[in-house]
């Protein structure tokens, strides 16, 4: 299938902005609307654009699956730390009395890992579908 030149150049302009917006939504998840899932989905759409401009960023899927697996384990571990600091599972690991600025560290870290996990998962799904379709 041949893609037109106009579409290609428009996508080349669009690609950095879309990936930047995805990272913004992930990092600012606790202040503005959005969060890990939404930002990860936007990042996956940015990778989808690279298929139109024939950049071929995704080469081996096993690496992506490995990244997703470790991101999931990291999420569980970060959630589990609160057992030692607060005495209960799956909540903020910074003590209740501390200030808001420190509590945000937990939110940003967890949003970041959830974003990576969702983005890699969706990219894997899209790439397997595109490979099957050829």
């Amino acid at each position: 299938m041949k893609t037109s030149e106009i579409l290609k150049s428009m996508c080349k302009v669009l690609f950095p902005f879309v990936s930047m917006f995805g990272l913004y939504v992930i990092i600012n998840g606790h202040i503005s609307p959005g969060g890990g899932f939404q930002g990860g989905a936007i990042l996956a759409t940015a990778i989808l654009i690279t298929y139109i401009i024939e950049l071929d960023i995704v080469e081996n899927l096993t690496l992506l699956i490995r990244i997703e697996k470790y991101a999931f384990l990291t999420i569980i571990l970060i959630g589990g730390i609160s057992l030692f600091t607060r005495g209960e599972f799956f909540t903020n690991f910074i003590p209740i009395g501390s200030s808001i600025v420190y509590k945000r560290i937990f939110l940003i870290a967890l949003n970041f890992f959830i974003g990576i996990k969702v983005a890699t998962g969706l990219i894997t799904i899209i790439s397997t579908f595109i490979e099957e379709g050829e």
Binding site: G29, H30, I31, S32, P33, G34, G35, F72, I75, I76, G79, F89, F90, T91, N92, I96, I100, V101, Y102, K103, R104, F106, L107, L110, N111, I114, K117, V118
Partner: peptide, 25 residues
């Protein structure tokens, strides 16, 4: 005050109900 998040949706799915979001992932 309890979670430090302006976005209350994030406050719910990352703090009060983290158990649910882990299984969602």
């Amino acid at each position: 005050r309890e979670t430090g998040s302006n976005n209350l949706v994030t406050a719910i799915y990352l703090d009060y109900r983290l158990y649910d979001s882990i299984y969602e992932a």
